[in-house]
Design a protein around this nucleic acid. Structure first.
Lengths: 190, 190
DNA sequence: GACCCCGATGTCAGGAACTGTCATCAGTAC
DNA sequence: GTACTGATGACAGTTCCTGACATCGGGGTC
């Protein structure tokens, strides 16, 4: 006989996404989410630092994929290193998660507070990537620029992946966006 | 005979920055700020949408400088357009504001909530720039990439400007960072 | 000059997000 | 069997933020 059902955290996440989708982020109280998961408000805040964070768990692993790509890339060309990192990160979003990612993104795009949190996560990712690049010998400015550019490519590519039908996998889109960045920056058009 | 002292908004901003610097963002209540400005908490929220916003007023003009640069640039090379926009934006931060900017940045860097807000503002800037670039004929992806890259250059350059002594003006730093981005992306290093 | 509206502020009540603290009690270790 | 642990509940309290209504100097209208 268990005293509590296991998986409280997962239940909270599922209940939160469902409610946010139905009534919006602002229209949902933490107490409602907790009740839907059979828990109390206080317990929600033991699992998530604040109301927004319930949508952003598991970002650590995502960061690790980027860093692993940077560390294992067998080249010293920054663009090539970023390409490997993006390839690794794309593995985090297989095609069968596209629909789920879309739902989540709709919720985020509807609320400035959630957008702020997403941006903070991506900024943290850029900082982590900067550190990894510096360990590979880049100076501070170059590392920061490469990291920020990589994140920018990911942002643009991810938005495209979300918006598209079922055409291309994320990895292919990211490669195309990175190529477009290169041609944009390097091929002057008069 | 005036019923209230004028400049309520400015008094609130000054009081807020002073208190945030002294006791931190979290350690300062809105009621304290308002009292220091001779006003009530309710009036604070009539001037600023939330507690953080008091540090981020006047961003509209900043955005306008970027957009004006994009619109008036007499070239179709995206990097050159971004360069003009960055030149315009640098005018917003003359050297005698460096010390003030530094104080403000210390406060922001000490609080994740304020960092979120700053990132949201920069993201809005990127969106605005993307629109201006699209009006100049770039397709959606190219415009977004150029805008994001421009903002990334600004971020890196601004941080350098804040961190440096009194060496170079912001405009010079931004030009150097943009050049470094170009060489980073375009000059493959084996 | 009497009248009236406007706009910035004050006052008050209240909801929702968080936090600190202590109690509860199944499972586990010994 | 006793003590400890760890997830949860209960509850009070602070702060952020909002809605509703009152106040009253200034400026316009007649």
């Amino acid at each position: 006989m268990v005293r509590w059902e296991p998986g409280a955290r997962e239940r909270l996440q599922a209940a939160a996404l469902e409610r946010f989708g139905a009534r919006g982020f602002d229209g949902t109280t933490v107490a409602e989410i907790a009740a839907a998961a059979g828990l109390t408000e206080r317990t929600f805040f033991r699992h998530f630092a604040d109301k927004r964070e319930v949508l952003f768990a598991g970002q650590d692993e995502f960061e690790r994929l980027f860093v692993a790509g940077i560390e294992e890339a067998e080249t010293t060309d920054p663009v090539a290193i970023i390409a490997v990192a993006l390839d690794g990160a794309a593995a985090f979003f297989p095609d069968d998660r596209r629909s789920w990612s879309r739902m989540r993104q709709v919720v985020i795009d509807a609320d400035p507070g959630l957008q702020e949190r997403e941006l903070l996560k991506l900024s943290g990712l850029a900082t982590t990537m900067t550190g990894a690049l510096r360990r590979r010998g880049f100076d501070a400015t170059a590392a920061a620029l490469a990291a920020e550019s990589g994140v920018a490519v990911f942002r643009v590519g991810f938005a495209t992946w979300i918006a598209e039908g079922e055409d291309r996998p994320l990895a292919a889109i990211l490669r195309a966006v990175l190529a477009e960045l290169r041609s944009l920056v390097c091929a002057p058009r008069t």
